[in-house]
Write a protein that binds this DNA or RNA. Structure first.
Lengths: 201, 201
DNA sequence: ATATTTATGTATCGATCATTATATATATCA
DNA sequence: TGATATATATAATGATCGATACATAAATAT
């Protein structure tokens, strides 16, 4: 059922690659600022191919948001979850955030959700729900790592996991915003030690 | 030299009011999403009047950013600076942020700079510099209040004013982002006590 | 081989975009 | 009272917007 050969002329492009290219355009120019010409140009396909593969501009946009959640937005969280030492985990999370905030391969800076997607909330249907979910998912994943450390006795019993998780996420947003505004990674790293201590205090 | 009557037909609209209306449109729809029709409609003037008074769309946008810095973006900072008790000042700052994040009179939610303006960075010339300046100005104003409390002996000598100021600002950004995504004021206020303590710890 | 199905490329649709001529209205200046 | 200067309203500019018709190409199905 899964890999039966499909009929008809096969795709000449990789839809994941095309979606990534589209995301980068939306990231840099925003939803309205990204024209179909910009998008299909970067994706390397023609207009009709885009419509056939992804629906329309809005659906393409929503798919790039999902892609971001699966890949880019996830990277710092993955580091946070995989680094055994909790202090290094927090530090690694923030270092990755700073890296992404200042030097994404797309050329765009900051957080795709916070910088570009959030501007389209209220204008493009389906965006708000996705952003809300992304926030809550991340809050929960971060908090659950803190909970794990409490069970292991690394963090004290009264450690406020959810509050610190939310704070960590908001610190992330702050870095992303500063990155978008042109702050350098070096400038942001000045606060790193201080913030790691605050989160774990 | 200042109040000599001007020649020609006088303006029939208040340019500050018109600018506020334009800001609210940009706030809700973003730079590209806001059409001249949307803008002039909300401003209550016709196209040529807008061009005569403000230049073009880009210049109008930049002027609304400056207006935001003078009024809306400033409100929490003013509270922070004027409340004598430092703990109440921090709390008042965050409460005002939450208020703005969830219920701005324009109907738009979140921070104009973070939600709408930042999406146009890299696309609209002159925006990046203004955002960068707004961040640094606010960081500095917040830090200077902390410094004042250190001089008065209310805060300890080793209190890291600038780091806490930046953290406070980033917490602000986090709240604004959550507000944009639909979070309620009530949900945000749950972290209030915790965050005030973190900032002043 | 022929039919069917899907993808692609070109060319184009009406709508809307930001911007501006043009003409008219309303003020001060001489 | 003209003459000048500024603001307004209507209408139209070329450009670009998102989206599609159409014919053609390339695969599987029978």
């Amino acid at each position: 059922m899964t890999d039966t050969k499909k009929m008809g002329r096969p795709r000449t492009f990789d839809s994941r690659q095309a979606l990534t290219a589209a995301m980068n355009v939306f990231w840099a120019k925003g939803y309205d600022g990204a024209s179909l010409k910009d998008l299909t140009g970067a994706m390397g396909i023609s207009g009709p191919s885009m419509y056939a593969a992804f629906g329309d501009k809005r659906e393409l946009f929503l798919k790039t948001i999902d892609l971001y959640g699966d890949v880019d937005g996830c990277a710092p969280v993955v580091i946070f979850e995989s680094e055994p030492d909790i202090r290094l985990a927090v530090r690694g999370f923030l270092e990755e955030v700073i890296k992404y905030a200042t030097a994404h391969e797309s050329g765009a800076k900051g957080c795709f959700l916070a910088s570009s997607v959030s501007a389209s909330i209220g204008e493009v249907e389906g965006v708000k729900e996705r952003v809300e979910k992304a926030i809550e998912d991340t809050d929960r994943r971060l908090a659950s790592r803190f909970d794990r450390e409490k069970e292991n006795g690394v963090l004290p019993e009264d450690f406020p996991s959810l509050e610190r998780a939310r704070l960590l996420y908001d610190v992330r947003q702050g870095y992303m915003f500063r990155g978008r505004a042109g702050w350098t990674a070096e400038a942001m790293r000045q606060d790193l030690d201080h913030r790691v201590s605050m989160i774990l205090a």
